[in-house]
Simulated scan of single mutants.
Amino acid sequence: MVTYDGGEGVLLGLACGDALGEPVEGWSADRIAAEYGTLTEFVDGRVPPGGLTDDTEQALRLARSLVECGGFDPDDASRRFIEWFEGGAVGIGGLTRRVLRRIVDGDDWERASRESWENSSEGRNAGNGSVMRCAPIAVAYAHDFDELTTASRTSSKLTHYDPRCVYGCELLNRAIAGYLRDEPRPLEDALSALPEEAPDELIAAVEPVPDEIDPETLSPTGYVVDTLQVATYHALTADDAESAVVNAVNGGGDADTIGAVAGAIAGARFGASALPDRWVDELDRGDDLRRLGRELADLDT
């Protein structure tokens, strides 16, 4: 079973990255440096310091669905995303919005997601909106890679049907699960487990991480391939959980989501106890995140 420290670490790390990065989402690294030097504390943005946006909000709903259903139920998870959407979704991405709107208007989730993807142009069809929320699955199925694979892929297809997103979720969750299992080479093992049909572009971006990447070439965009490359690089090159999140966020670009993905990996790698108390204490719904992290760990057998 996953340790409670690991389960909590994934959710709390994700939320810390979201909260730290949200106020500077869309900023360049130079602008962040000019304003803050190095941003290490939660500050005001669209939400108060320590507040959560779509990254954590969707992860929370996925986590609750897993716990309350005793496993992954795509219909239940989709229903919870709709409730969030209709209640006022802070920071929601364009593709997620289009898919959820179609579901509200009467489509089933599979048709809404597939056709929204088919009708989206390149550049609007493979964002990071599913990889940012998928980490609860890694906790629930850390020792069951068959279920992890199915749930990861399907969870992406709820809103992001592009193969780069689908296999990106699988890759990320296999890596997180590897850290939770205390495996020696989680990312390498996750890459080697991908099937032949996994997109070459995704593999080519992540395979060189971390040792063969020049950090000056990192592109912190909302494109799922870029997000995974940047987030895994910072999560794997940092010596501690705080540095992983800080470095990811201060690179700019889609700072909240890259911070969230890096934070989830770092939380699995170092545990909740390694996250700064000053961050965790200030997080909105920190107690819920801790509880859900433990309950997800209890699902893993």
Rank of each mutant, 00 (worst) to 15 (best):
G9W: 14
A15C: 02
D18K: 07
L20H: 10
L20D: 09
E22N: 06
P23M: 01
P23G: 00
E25H: 08
I32L: 01
A34N: 10
F42G: 00
L52D: 02
D54T: 11
D55P: 07
E57A: 12
C69K: 14
F72P: 04
F72C: 02
D73F: 03
P74Y: 08
A77I: 10
F81R: 04
I82Q: 01
G88S: 02
G88K: 06
A89Y: 08
G93L: 05
T96V: 07
T96F: 06
L100T: 07
D105R: 11
G106W: 08
D108K: 06
E110S: 12
S113Q: 07
G127Y: 13
V131P: 13
M132F: 08
R133S: 02
C134Y: 03
A135W: 09
V139K: 10
A140C: 11
Y141N: 08
Y141G: 04
A142W: 14
F145C: 01
F145N: 10
E147R: 15
T149W: 12
T150W: 15
A151N: 10
S152D: 08
D162Y: 15
R164L: 01
C165Q: 07
L172K: 11
R174D: 01
D182T: 13
E183P: 09
R185K: 11
A193M: 06
P195Y: 10
E197F: 02
E197S: 07
P199Y: 10
I203N: 02
V206K: 09
V209R: 05
D211Y: 09
D211P: 00
L218W: 11
L218G: 03
G222V: 09
V224L: 00
T227N: 13
L228K: 15
A231N: 14
Y233D: 00
H234P: 05
H234L: 01
A235G: 12
A235F: 12
T237V: 15
A238F: 10
D240Y: 14
E242Q: 15
S243G: 15
N247T: 13
V249Y: 12
N250H: 11
G251C: 04
G251A: 10
T257N: 09
I258D: 07
A260K: 10
A260G: 02
G263L: 13
A266E: 13
A266P: 13
G267I: 12
A268F: 12
A274Q: 12
L275S: 00
L275D: 00
L283E: 04
D287F: 06
R291D: 13
T301A: 11
T301G: 12
